[in-house]
Nucleic acid binder design. Structure first.
Lengths: 149, 149
DNA sequence: ATTGCTGCAAAACGTTTGCACCTAT
DNA sequence: ATAGGTGCAAACGTTTTGCAGCAAT
């Protein structure tokens, strides 16, 4: 199965941090990896509940935090006061273009962006951790517009 | 007084949008411009209340939204589920470097970043609105570290 | 056996809304 | 006169917490 590698990475991370290996944590990992695109913690909780899981909200929130720490998933923030996650597993790093009308999220990569964060950190005597580059606009082609808002 | 220009800009914006000119709105503008650095909407509300204002929470939130619309202030999001604002008035655009340990926010500018957002929007047939570029790291020099977290 | 993790519910937090009154137009 | 804005409080949605029981070490 293709998630075996992720399971192994998570297990190692838990061991290294002296966190316990529990079935619930792997249940959340499984659900997070199988989720398409970006999702909120509560979305995932509800989705898991709908598939007869007995997991608790707290465990989902806690585990997503751990998964973000070991970089199997990324935490995102698109300015709507809701933390979103997305799987990093077997995906290249990318940035986001968000339509302020309909909320549609487009992923893009630009080679010019890559080296900037590390350089800025060096300039200010910071140890680089992560960065987020979000561009907000309006999609002109309204055929694609989801108009969720 | 140096905020006269901002008051004028806001007044024009309100007229253009057929919003009413009310003393409360200018009270919020005044407070926002005089606030140093980044602030949350509720911080500003509390600060205004502490200086004997009778303004309501709803008015502060609504007015900050209007001030962001006319670009006298900027809305920021540093990943902690709290919208922050900062005055744009007489300031050059900049990006942010945030310490994940202590929450300290450093502003920087990098000329390479400027043109990217518009280009990306063109590529995807979007009308450019705004962008945010946040870098997260840990400050190595712990003398400066605020250790708020 | 001992912590740490879990589920549950309730609290906390920032933000938004509903409503009656008020005020700028 | 009348839309629209205001203050207040209560509701909202997301996230965090407290606690008793459970399970991984």
């Amino acid at each position: 199965m293709k998630n075996d590698k992720a399971i192994e990475i998570f297990k190692d991370f838990l061991k290294r941090g002296k966190y316990r290996i529990t079935p619930e944590r792997f249940e959340v990992l499984e659900a997070a990896l199988q989720h398409e695109g970006h999702f909120g913690a509560d979305d995932l909780y509800v989705k898991m509940k709908n598939t007869k899981s007995v997991i608790s909200r707290a465990t989902v929130y806690n585990t997503l935090e751990l998964l973000a720490q070991c970089e199997l998933i990324s935490k995102r923030n698109f300015g709507d006061n809701m933390t979103r996650f997305e799987s990093n597993f077997k995906r290249q790093t990318h940035d986001h273009l968000i339509c302020v009308d309909c909320g549609r999220i487009i992923e893009f990569t630009d080679p010019r962006i890559k080296k900037i964060p590390q350089e800025i950190c060096d300039n200010f005597d910071f140890e680089f951790h992560s960065y987020s580059f979000n561009i907000f606009g309006r999609c002109k082609n309204k055929k694609d517009c989801l108009n969720k808002k």
